Simulated scan of single mutants.
Amino acid sequence: MKNASIMLDHQPPAVVFERLPDGDAVVRLYDNIKDAADVAQPGETDPEQEPGSAYLADEVMFMLPAARAAEETRESVAADFSGWWKYGEAWEGQEKAPTVEERLAVMEDFMVAIMEG
């Protein structure tokens, strides 16, 4: 999934590789990272915004299933950044993602548990 020119409150690393408890991994790649103050048009800058307090970047994000995540690291993804970037642009989501109904049922159960206890 690709996000073009997102605003961040920190300078991101080029590769973020986060392993999840189930063994899957979330991978975020950042490219064209620029200080927002450097790319702002005249009149768009906030006089109170300090240089280095906001950044613009292109981002791709994708999930790796546990079997594949076990084979990869932040370093291995960084070594083939352009290949993984193309993979991230084409990634449309995981097949085992819960449906809206399943997510709503979990939230309802959670709310009932909070009210009871």
Rank of each mutant, 00 (worst) to 15 (best):
E44L: 08
E44V: 02
E44W: 11
T45K: 13
T45N: 15
T45M: 12
D46E: 10
D46L: 09
P47F: 06
Q49C: 04
Q49L: 15
Q49G: 09
Q49E: 15
Q49D: 11
E50V: 14
E50P: 02
E50F: 10
E50S: 14
P51D: 13
P51M: 06
G52T: 08
G52Q: 04
G52H: 04
G52C: 09
G52N: 10
G52D: 07
S53K: 05
S53C: 08
S53P: 09
A54D: 12
A54C: 05
A54P: 07
Y55N: 05
Y55L: 06
Y55I: 03
Y55A: 06
L56S: 11
L56Y: 14
L56I: 15
A57C: 12
A57D: 07
D58W: 12
D58V: 07
D58L: 07
D58H: 08
D58M: 06
E59I: 02
E59G: 03
V60C: 03
V60Q: 07
V60W: 07
V60D: 05
M61C: 12
M61D: 04
M61P: 01
F62C: 09
F62T: 05
F62N: 11
F62W: 09
F62Q: 06
F62V: 09
M63H: 14
M63C: 10
M63T: 11
L64A: 09
L64R: 11
L64G: 10
L64E: 10
L64S: 13
L64C: 09
P65G: 12
A66Y: 12
A67K: 14
A67V: 12
A67H: 11
A67E: 14
R68S: 11
R68Y: 03
A69K: 12
A69G: 04
A69M: 10
A70D: 13
A70H: 06
A70R: 14
A70G: 04
A70K: 14
A70V: 04
E71M: 13
E71T: 14
E72H: 07
E72V: 11
T73V: 06
T73D: 03
T73L: 01
R74I: 02
R74Y: 00
E75Y: 00
E75W: 00
E75A: 08
E75L: 02
E75G: 03
E75Q: 10
S76Q: 07
S76N: 02
S76V: 04
V77W: 01
V77L: 02
V77K: 03
V77T: 05
A78V: 03
A79Q: 07
A79H: 00
A79F: 01
A79M: 00
D80E: 07
F81M: 00
F81C: 01
F81K: 01
F81Q: 01
S82P: 00
S82Y: 00
S82M: 02
